[in-house]
Computed example of a mutant assay.
Amino acid sequence: MRITSPEFEDGEKLPEKHGYPRENTSPELEIEGVPEKAESLVVIADDPDAVEPAGKIWVHWTMWNIPADADRIAEDEAPGIEGTTDFRKTGYNGPNPPDGEHTYYFRLYALDTELDLEEGASREELDEAMEGHIIEEAELTARCGRLS
Score class of each variant (00 low, 15 high):
A50L: 01
N96W: 06
T4Q: 06
P21F: 03
E77I: 02
E28I: 00
D86C: 10
I66G: 04
A74R: 15
E139S: 12
A74Y: 06
G55D: 09
S148H: 05
V34E: 02
A68Q: 12
S40P: 01
I66W: 02
V34K: 00
V59F: 00
P35F: 05
P95H: 03
E77K: 15
H18D: 07
E23R: 05
T103Q: 15
T113Y: 04
T84H: 10
H133P: 05
E39S: 09
Y104I: 13
I134S: 06
T85G: 05
G91I: 13
E131W: 01
F87C: 05
G33C: 04
H18G: 06
K17C: 04
E131S: 14
Y104A: 04
V59M: 02
P15M: 11
E125F: 06
P67Y: 05
A68F: 11
I57L: 02
V34M: 03
G33D: 05
Y109L: 14
L41N: 01
D71P: 14
P6K: 07
E131P: 08
R143C: 14
F106W: 07
V34W: 00
S122I: 13
E39P: 00
T113R: 10
A138Y: 11
D112V: 03
W58R: 02
N96P: 12
E77S: 15
D46Y: 00
A54M: 10
E128T: 10
E136N: 07
T25D: 02
L140N: 08
E114Y: 09
M1Q: 08
E128Y: 03
G55C: 10
E137Q: 10
E139P: 02
A121T: 11
R2E: 15
T103K: 07
R146P: 14
P53G: 02
L108M: 08
A38S: 04
V34D: 00
E28P: 10
A38P: 03
S40C: 07
E124H: 13
W58E: 02
D99W: 12
F87N: 12
M130W: 02
E9D: 14
A78N: 11
E30Y: 03
S26V: 08
E75V: 13
A74D: 14
H18M: 08
E101D: 14
E124D: 12
A54K: 07
A54W: 02
D49Y: 00
I57D: 05
M130A: 11
Y105L: 15
T62V: 09
R107V: 04
E30T: 11
L115C: 09
P48G: 07
G33M: 06
D99C: 12
S26W: 04
E30S: 07
I134K: 08
L41E: 01
P21R: 08
D49V: 05
S40F: 01
V34A: 00
P48H: 04
P98S: 15
A78P: 10
Y20Q: 09
A50N: 01
L14M: 14
A45M: 01
E137D: 10
L111Y: 00
W58H: 06
I31P: 00
E137N: 11
C144E: 09
D127N: 12
D99I: 15
E136L: 11
T103I: 13
I135M: 09
G91D: 11
Y92W: 15
W61R: 02
